[in-house]
Design a protein around this nucleic acid. Structure first.
Length: 275
DNA sequence: CTTATTGTTGCACT
DNA sequence: TAGTGCAACAATAA
């Protein structure tokens, strides 16, 4: 599941593979991936040059010539891969961008949940999803002051609050479980009941874990690979996600798996306090 | 066969 | 009206 560190890793590996290339042809095998009229979008992309690849939250923003931006969300299993256009289409490949230099970028997505949206550069915020994104971890907008105020307003539980992309963007199921364990906060705690001191610790840990995960090129559980086909290294740092039944590395209590708003959640029932 | 998995959206409910 | 909860989406593995 690409969360912010994984999407950033994809951005860094994808950019050098496609930068300055010109799109010769776009083939769409599964039109639902592309918002709007897929054939129309494919036609529009023809002849456009890739300028850079940006990222906002879990969204990739592929900047094209003529002031166009292809907004791409990988959702759970989306992957980009550079191939030769002659390579037979694989089972879960849904879109191909063929370049004039004889290479091709393929979009692969087992679950078909990923989405691409072609918009005019500068209007990305109009796109559903990006419109509601809150600040990025480690940004000046994500200040302790902002975070304390946001938490005070939320009546829902802390896990659901951190998964809410309008509060802070980029966290998903894996990193929320890790951040809450590190902060010794139970996921079912009411966001507004967490003491000021703990909110400060939580804020620091969100920034720290995101930074470290980006440095380690993301977490490869299930099937995450970057655009170069390389796996990440943060999975070796995980303390709770995927470790249910194993002893907590802090207190040796057996880690438990519970459901929080329908999502699988791993916790240490001893270290993590309910507020 | 059933259940769990995952991020976001759109809709229902309070 | 705004905040919150939850099914739906699709495919696969256990």
């Amino acid at each position: 599941m690409p969360e912010l560190p994984e999407v950033e890793t994809v951005r860094r590996t994808l950019e050098p593979l496609i930068k300055d290339k010109t799109i010769k042809n776009v083939t769409v095998w599964y039109p639902k991936i592309i918002m709007g009229d897929a054939e129309q979008v494919a036609k529009q992309l023809k002849g456009k040059k890739i300028i850079t690849v940006d990222r906002y939250g879990k969204y990739l923003l592929i900047r094209l010539s003529d002031d166009l931006t292809l907004v791409s969300h990988l959702r759970m299993e989306g992957k980009y891969r550079l191939v030769t256009p002659e390579r037979p289409k694989q089972k879960h490949e849904h879109v191909q961008f063929e370049f004039t230099d004889g290479t091709a970028l393929r979009y692969d997505d087992v679950r078909k949940f990923g989405r691409m949206h072609l918009v005019e550069t500068g209007t990305e915020r109009i796109t559903t999803g990006i419109k509601h994104l809150g600040p990025e971890p480690n940004s000046s907008e994500f200040s302790i002051n902002y975070f304390e105020k946001a938490m005070a307003k939320k009546k829902k539980n802390i896990k659901n609050t951190l998964l809410d992309q309008s509060v802070v963007c980029g966290l998903g199921n894996i990193y929320v479980d890790e951040v809450l364990w590190l902060s010794k906060i139970h996921p079912l705690s009411s966001a507004q009941k967490i003491p000021r001191e703990q909110v400060k610790i939580l804020h620091d840990n969100i920034n720290e874990i995101m930074q470290k995960a980006i440095k380690l090129r993301g977490t490869s559980v299930h099937t995450f690979l970057d655009a170069a086909g390389t796996s990440g290294n943060y999975q070796n740092e995980l303390k709770v996600y995927g470790h249910a039944g194993q002893p907590c590395v802090r207190c040796s209590t057996k880690l438990e798996k519970i459901k929080v708003n329908g999502r699988g959640t791993t916790i240490c029932p001893t270290c993590q306090v309910v507020y």
